[in-house]
């Protein structure tokens, strides 16, 4: 059984078809990249999967259960959590407290604060944020904020992690570090990762499989090589060849 299965998911806002008939499957332990030009519907698809809004049509199954139409917090408790493209840490809380909230409320739901603090510490060590644990989140660099965003999601103990452009805006060393982290999350924690990414080098290098969206439709799927040679993808990214 696929971990996540979307069947003909459609979302329209008024007359605008943001996502049209998208079907996809994620197997356990995969890293799958979701690419496409701006406005292709990537973040909308993430919002649909994570329950920020219900799909207009279609079904989304997580571990076989229908989750389309469930509230975000219920979906999180089932083990599907997302990060935000524009990171949204709790600015006035310390790094440690930020991660602790994830441990308090996610899948594992630590009943008391001190237990959650311990759990959070493990995640902080895993993500390399433990030395900054007492710093308020607003004082972190962008790279660390993105790391915190991931750490906080990991603390909920998810099975599937949706990463929305965690590499955007990082320097090349930071990107390498972040890529290492993503790979370790899969290899050491055994999570499945579905990521939206614009940094092609990274997403090609990381993903087992790529899914390409264009104008809200899935136009291609396959490994990096297949996708980059796919004529429809080339057309979508680079435009049509001029026939003169």
């Amino acid at each position: 059984m696929a971990l996540l299965e979307c069947q003909e998911v459609t979302k329209n806002f008024g007359g605008l078809m943001a996502v049209t008939n998208v079907s996809l499957q994620l197997e356990k332990g995969e890293i799958v990249g979701l690419i496409g030009a701006n406005g292709a519907g990537k973040t909308t698809l993430f919002n649909l999967i994570s329950g920020f809004y219900p799909p207009t049509n279609g079904s989304i199954r997580f571990e076989g259960d229908e989750i389309a139409g469930l509230k975000t917090h219920d979906i999180c408790r089932k083990g599907l959590v997302r990060t935000f493209q524009l990171v949204r840490p709790f600015h006035n809380m310390t790094v440690w407290d930020n991660v602790m909230v994830g441990a308090l409320f996610g899948v594992q739901k630590c009943k008391n604060v001190s237990r959650a603090k311990e759990e959070a510490m493990k995640v902080l060590e895993f993500t390399g944020l433990h030395e900054k644990k007492e710093i308020p989140a607003k004082e972190l660099t962008i790279a660390d904020r993105k790391r915190l965003e991931v750490a906080r999601s990991l603390a909920t103990k998810p099975k599937l992690l949706l990463l929305d452009e965690v590499l955007a805006g990082l320097t090349s060393t930071e990107t390498t570090e972040a890529m290492k982290l993503v790979r370790r999350i899969r290899d050491e924690m055994g999570l499945t990762i579905f990521m939206v990414e614009h940094v092609m080098k990274a997403v090609m290098g990381l993903s087992d499989r790529l899914i390409v969206l264009h104008n809200g439709e899935k136009i291609a799927e396959g490994n990096a090589k297949e996708v980059s040679k796919n004529p429809t993808v080339i057309e979508a990214y680079l435009g049509e060849k001029l026939h003169m």
């Binding site: 509230k71 999180c76 997302r82 935000f84 949204r88 006035n92 909230v101 899948v107 999601s153 909920t156």
Partner: peptide
């Protein structure tokens, strides 16, 4: 407190 800081992020963390 999480709601005060960012309600959507709080919701997505299972609150």
């Amino acid at each position: 407190f999480s709601i005060k800081e960012d309600e959507d992020a709080a919701e997505s963390l299972g609150i």
